[in-house]
Design a protein around this nucleic acid. Structure first.
Length: 642
RNA sequence: GCCGAAGUAGCUCAGCUGGUAGAGCUACUGAUUUGUAAUCAGUAGGUCGGGGGUUCGAUUCCCUCCUUCGGCUCCA
């Protein structure tokens, strides 16, 4: 007998060779029906795989992460079966589960998939699922596997086999489809009741754009139709919170064909938000001893040759324009200009740390396919600053930048983010990264030490650094689940030398500063795009582009309404007056939809009492209040970033 | 840039297999003077993304360019 330990700590005894399914069945029939896979000693297994020794066991249902992943992985195989059946001879690369569904990368040969084809594949998948075919695990030696795929002429699976050794090669078969696969899988296709294929896309083989492009089909499945319906409804709902939709509805920004792709136009309300963000940043930076500078939007080629951007970054820059026999580039970043400012006057160690800040506008030639609303644009204004400091000051300066992040994220109520320590990739020195291995290692160690000391959780990722040094990126997710770097904090050990930047130290010797590039609020474009989604358009009072709307009951009270408006405006608030000849219900409805935080209803009573009837967006009527009291209340909220 | 899809009024969308376009909201005008999520009536608004082709005739079919969307690659 072997001992099976369940997550609640209870131990049950079984004959060796017992399967997780049998364990589930011994507990209850209902459980046995719902369970999809099992975690055996921390590893996800097929339900039908025999367990031969004492083990810990966790039964995974669809609701469990591992169960879901297994379910979708098996669904990918089911889709592959339907596709192979309809298009014999197509070759399959990989078909992994995702957080929401799965995909399979396929070399379709000369076949092309259309949306209509997806519908018929879906239909066939449902039919195949109903056949209740079992997913059968087959162990195979490497020689056998190589032979199988050589005969099949499948170079993709042969390529996968290269990385595998004997003993770890398994195949899975369901119905007519057999695939090289490590598994695990659900017991049978009959669990898959609801199928939706979401999209067709091209995906480069192994993610390298020099390779052939395969056809990637995205899909999602569920054990119940109602779950699929709910999922699709949720996607629909998420689309309503997409910053592109909200940006249009709330009149924040627009794009125009004649201005150009990726070049957003900020409408007055968008500009109002920008003003407030800048105010916050400028005040915060001022407190931390930053000084502000201003630099032009272009510069001669020589500047970017010196900075190293041209060799490493040219593809992302707009092509140069010729003037007076010189090439000029639109700036893709502010640092070279700032370095020139640092270098313009001799510096002493007493001047350091020197923190040069600018909301500089940069232009980057993003590939057309990458443009994405405000999140990925070609002109952007960065919450930029460069800190020039000594090695001894580095840790403290770096920590202070982190403090800024934390302060900002608290104000904005951002709690779901990931701090990513982006490192270089040694094999790409001299191509993607400046060729100085020891300096990379030294700097990365320095950054890691500071990060560990700061106690903020972070992940390390290779091959994500800037060309001049490692960086800390803050990753956030958009309403529709796209991941973005919102903020960045970069260490630069290369440019001080390239620009020959020095300061005189205490011993009357010239020394190079370390440079920190930092942009805690990223760019206005991406940050406001993110905020739109984060707040679902309901900006807090301090940040709202329209903070108060005054809604007179009728035009008899317009004079008083104007008085209220002017009083609030004198206090620096963004106020509008709805003087349309509409009924109050209509005015309220329209203002609610604009997400204006405060509505002030004014009529006979308010005029007599010098008062306002306050209505909070999303909350309803808060009752009447003296105008002076309301002004004090809202100013207090603004002051506290509420 | 690559693979796939789409582009009709300011917005959301309708327009069967080719016979030069329609609704709701918005805007404007008038009436209504209104008390916490839509008052009524009228008016205006589109070289159907641009260009070219096929056709007696193109929003509809074909080509091409532009833009947008879903991905890939890339990135703040």
């Amino acid at each position: 007998m072997i001992k099976i330990t369940l997550p609640d700590g209870s131990v049950r005894e079984f004959e060796p060779g017992v399967t997780a399914y049998q364990v589930a069945a011994s507990i209850s029939q209902g459980l046995a029906k719902a369970v999809l896979a099992a975690e055996v000693n921390g590893e996800v297994w097929d339900l039908t795989r025999p367990i031969n020794q004492d083990s810990s066991l966790k039964l995974l249902k669809f609701e469990d992460e591992g169960g879901k992943k297994t379910f979708w992985h098996s669904s990918a195989h089911l889709m592959a079966e339907a596709i192979e059946e309809a298009y014999p001879g197509v070759k399959f690369w990989v078909g992994p589960p995702l957080d929401n569904g799965y995909y399979y990368d396929i070399d379709m040969g000369d076949n092309k998939l259309t949306e209509d084809d997806l519908r018929s594949i879906e239909k066939r998948m449902t039919e195949l699922a109903a056949q209740a075919n079992k997913y059968i695990r087959i162990e195979m030696s490497k020689d056998e596997a190589v032979k199988y795929f050589t005969e099949k002429g499948d170079e993709y699976k042969l390529d996968l086999l290269k990385g595998l050794t004997d003993g770890e090669i398994t195949f899975y078969k369901q119905g007519s489809f057999t695939d090289l696969c490590r598994g695990p899988h659900i017991p049978s296709t009959e669990y898959i009741k609801a199928v939706k294929l979401l999209s067709i896309a091209g995906a480069y083989w192994k993610g390298d754009e020099k390779n052939k492009q395969l056809t990637r089909v995205y899909g999602i499945t569920f054990p119940k139709q109602v779950q699929l319906d709910a999922h699709l409804a949720m996607l629909e709902e998420a689309r309503k919170n997409d910053h592109r939709t909200l940006g249009r509805e709330l009149e924040i920004f627009t794009f125009d064909d004649e201005v150009g792709p990726g070049l957003p136009l900020w409408l007055p309300k968008g500009a109002a938000i920008i003003e407030k963000l800048e105010k916050l940043a400028k005040e915060s930076e001022h407190e931390q001893g930053y000084v502000r500078v201003k630099t032009p939007h272009l510069a001669k080629e020589a500047l970017y040759l010196r900075s190293g951007h041209l060799p490493y970054y040219a593809e992302s820059m707009f092509p140069p324009m010729e003037m007076d026999g010189q090439k000029y580039y639109l700036k893709a970043m502010n640092c070279p200009h700032h370095h020139k400012i640092f270098g313009a006057l001799p510096k002493s160690y007493r001047d350091l740390p020197m923190r040069l800040a600018e909301y500089g506008t940069c232009y980057r030639y993003e590939q057309s396919g990458e443009l994405f609303g405000l999140m990925r644009v070609r002109s952007m204004q960065m919450n930029d600053a460069h800190i020039y400091c000594t090695k001894a000051q580095f840790a403290e300066e770096f920590m202070k930048v982190n403090e800024l992040y934390v302060k900002y994220f608290k104000i904005f109520g951002i709690d779901k983010y990931q701090m990513r320590f982006s490192k270089h990739e040694p094999s790409k020195l001299g191509q993607k990264y400046i060729d100085n291995a020891p300096l990379w290692i030294e700097t990365e160690n320095m950054v890691r030490e500071v990060l560990i000391k700061s106690g903020v959780p972070f992940v390390e990722v290779a091959d994500e650094a800037a060309f001049y040094g490692p960086k800390i990126d803050i990753q956030l997710w958009s309403a529709i689940g796209k991941e973005f770097t919102i903020a960045t904090n970069q260490v630069d050990f290369a440019q001080a030398e390239r620009f020959d930047l020095t300061f005189m130290n205490e011993h009357n010797e010239k020394e190079r500063p370390i440079i920190i590039h930092r942009a805690p609020l990223g760019t206005h474009e991406r940050f406001i795009g993110f905020l739109l989604e984060h707040y679902a358009g309901k900006f807090p009072v301090w940040l709202a582009p329209e903070q108060v709307a005054i809604l007179p009951i009728s035009d008899k009270y317009l004079d008083y309404a104007k008085e209220v408006r002017d009083t609030l405006r004198k206090n620096g608030l963004e106020v509008t007056l709805d003087d349309r000849a509409e009924k109050i219900g209509k005015k309220i409805r329209d203002t609610e939809l604009k997400r204006t935080p405060y509505m002030l209803v004014v009529g006979e009573k308010e005029q007599t009492d010098k008062a306002v009837s306050v209505r909070r967006q999303g909350q309803g009527d808060l009752g009447a209040m003296g105008l002076a009291d309301f002004t004090a209340k809202i100013l207090e909220e603004v002051k506290n970033y509420l």
